[in-house]
C-alpha cells in the first residue's frame, strides 16, 4: 500500500467522519433536549441536498447561497414538524418519538423516491472548490478539504453556542431539568421547538456539503443514519464533544479499514459498537444510565 493511497483514503475517512460528526451532534442535541432519537435525521440530510438542488435548478442559486439558505429552510421545516407532530408526544416514552420520526422518514424518502427513483442527480461543486490542495504531507481534493474545515467550524460553533453562551446555558439547564428551568420564567416549550429546528438545520447543512460528493438521491440519508446511530451508541448520547470526537474518529477508522481490509469497511463501525458495548456499555463518553 503506497503512502499516497493511504493518505487518499485517510482524507476520505476524515471527510466522512465530518458527516458523522455533524449528524451525531445534531442527534445528541435533539435527544438531550427533547428525549427523541430523531430517525428522520438522515431524511432531513437528504432533504437538505435536494433543496440545494432545487434552489439551483429553479432559482439559479449557487452552492454558497444554498449553504446559507438550506439550513434556514430545513430548520423551518423542522420547526413545523415539531409543532405539528413531535410536540404531541412530549412526556411520553421516547420510543414513540423514534417511531414517529421513522414514519416521517418513510414519508419523506417515499416522496422523493416517487419522483426521482433511486438514481442520483449530480450536483457539481462550485468552481472555486474544484481541484486539489497540497497540504505538504499530502495532496488532497480541495472539496474534501473544504468539507473537513467547514464541518469543523460548524461543530466548534455548535459546541461554543451550547457550552459558552446564555442560550446554551438555557439549553443545558433544560436538558438537565426542564421543569425547574421553566419555573424560572424560561419558555421551555419554545426552546424545545427551536432545538429541533436547529438540530435539523445542522443536518440540512451537512446535506448541502454532501451534495457534490455523493450524488443527490433519495436514499443518501437512510443508510448513513444507521451508521450514525452506531456512532452515537459508541460515543454516548450525553456528550456534545463525545459526538464530535467519535464521529471524526470512526470516519478515520473506516478510511483505514478501506485500505487494509476493504471487505470490512462498511461494517467496521458496527464491530466497534459491539466491542464498546461489551467493554463499556454506557459508551465511551457516556454517563451510566
Amino acid at each position: 500500500m503506497s503512502y499516497q493511497a493511504l493518505m487518499a483514503q485517510l482524507a476520505i475517512g476524515v471527510s466522512n467522519g465530518a458527516f458523522y460528526a455533524m449528524l451525531s451532534l445534531g442527534l445528541a442535541v435533539i435527544f438531550g433536549m427533547l428525549n427523541v432519537v430523531n430517525f428522520a435525521h438522515g431524511a432531513v440530510f437528504m432533504l437538505g441536498a435536494f433543496v440545494a438542488l432545487f434552489l439551483k435548478l429553479q432559482l439559479g442559486l449557487g452552492y454558497y447561497a444554498s449553504l446559507i439558505l438550506v439550513p434556514i429552510i430545513v430548520g423551518a421545516f423542522g420547526v413545523l414538524a415539531d409543532l405539528a407532530l413531535l410536540k404531541r408526544l412530549r412526556g411520553l416514552d421516547p420510543l414513540y418519538g423514534l417511531l414517529l420520526t421513522f414514519g416521517m422518514t418513510l414519508v419523506l424518502e417515499g416522496i422523493f423516491r416517487y419522483f426521482y427513483g433511486s438514481a442520483g442527480v449530480p450536483y457539481s461543486a462550485p468552481e472555486g472548490l474544484v481541484g486539489a490542495v497540497d497540504l505538504g504531507f499530502m495532496i488532497m481534493p480541495l472539496y474534501r478539504f473544504w468539507v473537513i474545515v467547514a464541518s469543523a467550524v460548524v461543530c466548534f460553533g455548535t459546541w461554543y453556542a451550547i457550552e459558552r453562551t446564555r442560550l446554551g446555558a438555557y439549553l443545558r439547564a433544560a436538558t438537565e431539568n426542564a421543569t425547574l428551568t421553566q419555573s424560572f420564567g424560561i419558555n421551555v416549550p419554545v426552546l424545545l421547538t427551536l432545538t429541533y429546528g436547529l438540530g435539523v438545520a445542522l443536518a440540512g447543512f451537512a446535506g448541502v456539503l454532501a451534495a457534490p460528493i455523493y450524488s443527490v438521491n433519495p436514499l443518501m440519508g437512510s443508510n448513513l443514519i444507521i451508521v450514525v446511530f452506531a456512532v452515537v451508541v459508541i460515543g454516548g448520547m450525553g456528550s456534545i464533544l463525545g459526538a464530535i470526537v467519535s464521529g471524526f474518529a470512526l470516519g478515520i477508522l473506516e478510511g483505514f479499514t478501506k485500505v487494509f481490509y476493504p471487505e470490512a469497511s462498511n461494517i467496521v463501525v458496527f464491530v466497534v459498537m459491539a466491542i464498546v458495548l461489551l467493554v463499556k456499555p454506557a459508551g465511551l463518553f457516556g454517563r451510566a444510565t
Binding site: 435527544f31 432519537v37 416514552d93 421516547p94 420510543l95 423514534l98 444507521i226 451508521v227 446511530f229 452506531a230 452515537v232 451508541v233 461494517i267 458496527f270 464491530v271 459498537m273 459491539a274 458495548l277 461489551l278 456499555p281 444510565t289
Partner: peptide, 20 residues
C-alpha cells in the same frame, strides 16, 4: 450485546447490528 442497554438504545443497537 443489545440487552446491555435499555429503551431507546436497545432499539438503536438492534438496528445497527441488523444493518451490519
Amino acid at each position: 450485546l443489545a440487552i446491555r442497554r435499555q429503551g431507546i438504545y436497545f432499539a438503536m443497537i438492534t438496528l445497527a447490528l441488523s444493518q451490519m
